[in-house]
Design a protein around this nucleic acid. Sequence first.
DNA 1: ACTAATTCTTGAAGCGCTTCAATCGAACTA
DNA 2: TAGTTCGATTGAAGCGCTTCAAGAATTAGT
Lengths: 353, 353
Amino acid sequence: MPGSIKLADVAKLAGVSLGTASNAFNRPERVRQEVREQVAAAARKLGYLGPDPKGRLLMGGKAHAIGVLPAGEISVAHAINSPFFRDFMLGVSEICDENRANLLIVSGTKDRKDWAIRNALVDGFILGHTGEVELVSQRHQKVPFVVMDVDAGPDVSSVRIDGRTGARRAAEHLLALGHRRFAILAMSRRPVSPIWHPASDLSRRLVGSFPLDHEKLLGYGDAFEAAGISLDNVPIVESHPPTGWVEAGASMLFERAPKATAILAMSDRHAVAVLVEARRRGIRVPRDLSVVGFDNAPDAVTSDPPLTTVAQPLVEKGRIAARIVFGGGPPRQDILPVELIVRSSTSRPRRQS
Amino acid sequence: MPGSIKLADVAKLAGVSLGTASNAFNRPERVRQEVREQVAAAARKLGYLGPDPKGRLLMGGKAHAIGVLPAGEISVAHAINSPFFRDFMLGVSEICDENRANLLIVSGTKDRKDWAIRNALVDGFILGHTGEVELVSQRHQKVPFVVMDVDAGPDVSSVRIDGRTGARRAAEHLLALGHRRFAILAMSRRPVSPIWHPASDLSRRLVGSFPLDHEKLLGYGDAFEAAGISLDNVPIVESHPPTGWVEAGASMLFERAPKATAILAMSDRHAVAVLVEARRRGIRVPRDLSVVGFDNAPDAVTSDPPLTTVAQPLVEKGRIAARIVFGGGPPRQDILPVELIVRSSTSRPRRQS
DNA sequence: ACTAATTCTTGAAGCGCTTCAATCGAACTA
DNA sequence: TAGTTCGATTGAAGCGCTTCAAGAATTAGT
């Protein structure tokens, strides 16, 4: 509404100065009771609901909100739809509640994120693992922020997990069960259709991945190597969960790597896709095929069969990240532990090798 | 950072006026290429990332975000955890993405909501069905808003469902199957332990409910009446889902209304709690007990057995609400259709009456 | 070459509020 | 009564940016 009442109007009607009116609202104790009531009365009469936050903000005020940018180029809708994100946000929102702050979810492609980082009205940011460009620009921002799942150096707070160890545990588990023929369903962070990587130089393997995804690959490799298997001989399919192409990725895996007895999936979302696709093809898990996921997202428990997976403390991760943003202390780098959780999607292979 | 660079600094270094510098960023076409580059260069040199949104905001700018206040007194964490809310938010976020806006989730108790409504930096609000006090104060706000699931009169936009009809369909379905002994697990919006309503005056039945919940009660009543049953003789337990007391509510229902052959649950969350509690007690659904939910939230499909429920178009509801906020047209009141979906949680009662 | 029509820039006036040094008054000494 | 105190007000100076009328520079028109 144009010409809406402002604090000045209230002050005038109450017969006090602007400053006093402001105090009446924000520091009542500094204003005589009588005057306070006059101001309140004037406000009521004019239908004034209190100082406009826009004005307050400018003068060094807080926005009472922190922003979260999900990882990768995904929409808010996709983010909310992801069990991983949801658990993470649970932790974040818990701390927001504690700090009486709101939660702003920002999304979209890189361009849009850059824009958002500069324009969002928040007191701090939690950045889903994001490229260096954004990091650099962040440096100059005056709001605290934390990056997830990537080491951005000692000047930047980050919270991540030991992905390499986690992935190694997953592969070791399968090796211990006797598996020797593997396939990997890898994470892509870009919205493209599944990519088949038959056997090639490691460094050129994942095209749409983030550092964490590479770490996982290395972790699988660590375990393989100890067992005398070369990661370079393990087929890989890379696929992007939010767009729903992950089922196609699982399908591609079955088509092109039919001899694998065990599949290492870089997320539970990927693993569930394998489960679904396996059932569609009449392949029984874990009898005919073992599958191990990553994250221990909520759907790892509800899937059929429940997933053997590498658990990361998603909720706690959210809490820590949010605390860092609110706390605003010196930069710190947290690395959270991971843990293999064995459920029912893995077993010995039917016939050795 | 105190003393951080501002637009004025950039302007000075570039040797142009403040106004021109502003235009260089916001309306590049109005500035000569050469000058534009000077400004850009100056900005780069100073590490200036573009106009601070706080300043922009004041001069009638947009916050590029809309706020969502979940219904009832719940935390952001609880809200995110609710499948109902998630589906709804999916629709909202879709429209936010379209409008390149962010999504602010506000939560908490009434006090905090009032505060948030006045202070959140957003261009509009979606209010989970909320009491009149908040409505009234909203009237004076200058941002567009829409209320969910409650008719707030012709001056206020609202989106709701025909809860009464939906509830009637649910009860009619059970009646048609031959059920005569019912119990209702009702919705409470307040974080209190379950409340037992044996048989009393209708108007005093639900203590922590919202209008929609009352509508549902009336809908059940409509069906009962047509079958010669009085709603007043149907036992009711009222419970609050977010706090986890809903399982206790289901349990209370089994304790105090052991003879019911069918349970009408006001949400799928309630219905699932009944399912869980039934299994715990060795009561088989639908053989020994029929259960019908409400909402058709995601978990209605994944529950065991899948729920017979009254579907409401949750995602679409979110879309419509968000469009109203962004569209900002004249107030409108939408009523969305509901539809009974029969799955496997209902069947004929084992022995008549 | 000179005026008319354009395109660019400028400077100043806010946007709505908070802050803070300075002022005012009244209650309190001595 | 004059001199202190101390809390309650005031007034003006911003916060960082956008806007807009008005002026300057450039281009077009004849």
